[in-house]
């Protein structure tokens, strides 16, 4: 047999594009972004050193604080909403019902569409004058008023709502696959033992699906941190800055407000936050379980 080094030449060669991408597009860009965040760059980067000055500015910026708050509100509503609705849909679809295939297809189709489409549709339905409000008036409920999309203190909830519409099907699909994986005998055993179905879901099924819940949680969490298109399409960040989010903050300051240093500082904060949360989870999920590949 050839020595291992020779055998692997072709494999190593095949990985060259990936190595380039990893080194330049991933590691290099992150380092570069972090470096710029310590400079006083404006439109173009220049490489002086101002310490944490940009970070001070960032957290003093009202717009950033609002963005982070919005992210928290959006995140909680979106994630809890998707998990609860997705779980209920999955459980109900798993009750040997008629038309399951059609319903399943219906619940998931929004996930095939982009956040841009989602945002635009709901922007139209929730239109403060011509949308639901006018429909209710047309049906005779003339005092009905629904203008949340135009209200700075409420619009972010609607953005989260639209997000739930788009992504709840994802949770349903993941959990339904999990429910289908549960041994049929388990349900039979529970019936023989006289344990009611809701009790089985609570005490047995949900713990059994914990891995799937975590997967769904991670997917939704990533969507939350990256949320950008939905806001751009639905509210454009408004009214005012009331639905701004961090991802949009970065893009706006990079390309429209031309404050590269502040934008990269914001991006770096996002990076560190995600890394701190995802790093340990990734480690436990993918690396710890396969010690054989460590070499």
């Amino acid at each position: 047999m050839k020595p291992r080094r020779l055998r692997n030449v072709a494999a190593q060669t095949a990985l060259i594009p990936s190595w380039l991408i990893v080194i330049f597009a991933y590691i290099g860009t992150i380092a570069w972004t972090i470096r710029i965040s310590f400079t006083s760059s404006g439109i173009f980067p220049h490489y002086d050193w101002v310490g944490l000055k940009q970070y001070d500015r960032l957290f003093d910026s009202h717009r950033w604080v609002v963005s982070v708050q919005n992210l928290a509100i959006f995140g909680v509503i979106f994630i809890v909403g998707c998990l609860v609705l997705g779980f209920l849909l999955a459980v109900f679809l798993d009750q040997k019902i008629r038309g399951e295939g059609i319903l399943r297809t219906l619940f998931l189709y929004p996930y095939a569409m982009s956040f841009i489409v989602t945002g635009l549709v709901w922007q139209w339905i929730l239109n403060p004058t011509l949308g639901i409000e006018q429909a209710m008036h047309a049906w005779g409920w003339s005092s009905f008023s629904f203008d949340w999309l135009a209200r700075g203190d409420r619009a972010i909830y609607l953005v989260a709502f639209a997000g739930i519409w788009q992504s709840a099907g994802l949770v349903m699909a993941i959990l339904l696959a999990g429910l289908r994986g549960i041994d049929e005998d388990l349900w039979k055993a529970a019936r023989v033992d006289g344990i009611p179905a809701w009790r089985i879901y609570l005490s047995v099924v949900i713990p059994m699906l914990s891995g799937m819940f975590v997967t769904a949680l991670v997917l939704l969490g990533i969507a939350v941190v990256k949320v950008y298109d939905l806001v751009v399409a639905m509210t454009g960040g408004g009214p005012g800055i009331s639905t701004e989010v961090p991802a949009k903050f970065v893009i706006d300051y990079l390309f429209n407000r031309q404050n590269v240093a502040l934008a990269t500082a914001a991006a770096s904060v996002m990076f560190v936050a995600v890394f701190v949360v995802v790093g340990p989870w990734l480690y436990s999920q993918y690396l710890r379980r396969r010690p054989g590949e460590a070499s």
Binding site: D185, A189, S203, V204, M208
Partner: peptide, 13 residues
């Protein structure tokens, strides 16, 4: 009382 081929034990308990 019934005993199944796949045991059907509640895995988290």
């Amino acid at each position: 009382g019934m005993v199944f081929q796949s045991y059907a034990l509640y895995p988290q308990m």
